Simulated assay, not measured.
Amino acid sequence: MFRPVPVPVLPPSTALADLATAGEHHAWLAGTTGVFTSRPSAPLVLSWTGETWREEPLPDLPAPASLSGVSATAPDDVWAVGNSDGHPLVLHYDGTTWHTVTTPPITWAKAVAAVARDDVHVVGTGRDTLHYDGTHWHVRTALSSAREGLQTITATAPHHVWAGGGGLAGAGPATYDYPVLVHWDGHTWTEIAGPRLERGHVARLAATAPDDIWLGHVRDTEGLRVHRWDGRQWNAVPTPDHTGRLSVHGVAAGWTWGVRATRRSFDTRPAFHRWTGHRWTTVALPDDLARTSASHVGLATTGTTTWAYLKTAAGVHVLRHTAP
């Protein structure tokens, strides 16, 4: 069962975006405050201290900004990415202070994968990516078409990095989107074959090893479908079984998350599922949260400790699940 942990009081205008871990006792939650208000939006990072979640002091920025991704290799090597004034925003935590990092421009930074202190990748909604080698940032082109873009990235080693997104084909009413998947081998991005999917886009990637990759694919209004690479082929993973209407939003290694609604209701309840090896099992939430409408649902796992977050009318909630 997920159990809640203390969280600071945050403005109602808070939007949550991504969660990262570094071992069992360190985690960071990234988001944005001031969303859909007259105030300038500002980046937000919460960190787990071992006893509670606290809001991190971030550098002052000259323009409105938002965060969309976070990744960590160690408690003193954390990266958060987003956008500010139409330019990529990259923040780095060295164990003491958060710093703004200057990078070359790419289109709308979406996600980050920190492989090591001297090996960081940032992807955006365009075909170019950023790569940090410990000294310099380099622009690397990952996609062949200007109508393609990336939005998710995962890595298990310097030569095993995967990124996914989608592209647009056709024109006018005949326009449709298609999934794209690319791989970084330590030197070059190369397009690779994903599941046999003709339409939609890759919304989420997670990997524990080169032969264990989880992919979340979205097509039109069908919601997210999960596929898993076993080192030889892609296999479709059945959708979690749930009464009412279930909308799966994301996938991690062995987990999915989303919201569910009962028939004749538009209230969306949070839903988290754990893979048993053959099927998904629903992981219980505290009763008050299980009955509450929620949004901005997400999750990150180390395998032993799993953190989840969600937002309700009462505010932001963070929960912890420890594997038996």
Rank of each mutant, 00 (worst) to 15 (best):
V45W: 01
Y178S: 00
H317R: 10
G254N: 02
D119G: 03
A253D: 05
D177P: 09
D185W: 04
R279H: 13
Q151L: 06
T301P: 00
W53D: 05
G315E: 04
H321D: 09
R260C: 00
G23S: 09
S47W: 12
A20K: 03
G134C: 11
T262H: 14
A63Y: 12
E148R: 01
V9N: 11
L44E: 04
R263P: 03
V202R: 05
R291P: 02
Q233K: 11
W255E: 00
T97R: 11
L16Q: 01
T33N: 03
G194P: 07
H201A: 09
G277S: 07
P238R: 06
T322N: 14
G164L: 05
T96K: 09
E24P: 11
L299S: 10
R274W: 08
R228N: 07
I192V: 15
T73E: 07
L168S: 14
R291F: 07
P12L: 10
L197Y: 00
V101R: 06
T21F: 04
T221H: 14
V78Q: 09
D94H: 06
A113L: 03
G170R: 15
W255R: 04
G50S: 13
H321C: 05
G277W: 08
R264C: 08
G167F: 09
R263N: 13
T141R: 14
T256H: 01
D220R: 12
G200E: 07
S293F: 06
L215V: 10
V45L: 12
A142T: 09
E51P: 00
F2V: 00
A157E: 12
T37F: 13
H321R: 14
G258D: 03
V35G: 10
G166T: 06
T14V: 13
L224K: 08
A314C: 06
T129V: 12
A42M: 13
L58E: 03
D241M: 07
T152S: 02
T33L: 13
A313F: 08
W234P: 05
D85P: 00
V226A: 02
E198W: 05
E191F: 01
V123W: 04
V70I: 15
W98Y: 02
T188M: 08
G165E: 02
L181R: 06
D267W: 07
V90S: 08
P88I: 03
A308M: 11
V237H: 02
Y176Q: 04
W48V: 01
A116P: 05
H273L: 02
R279Q: 11
T14P: 04
R196S: 15
H121S: 06
Y176N: 01
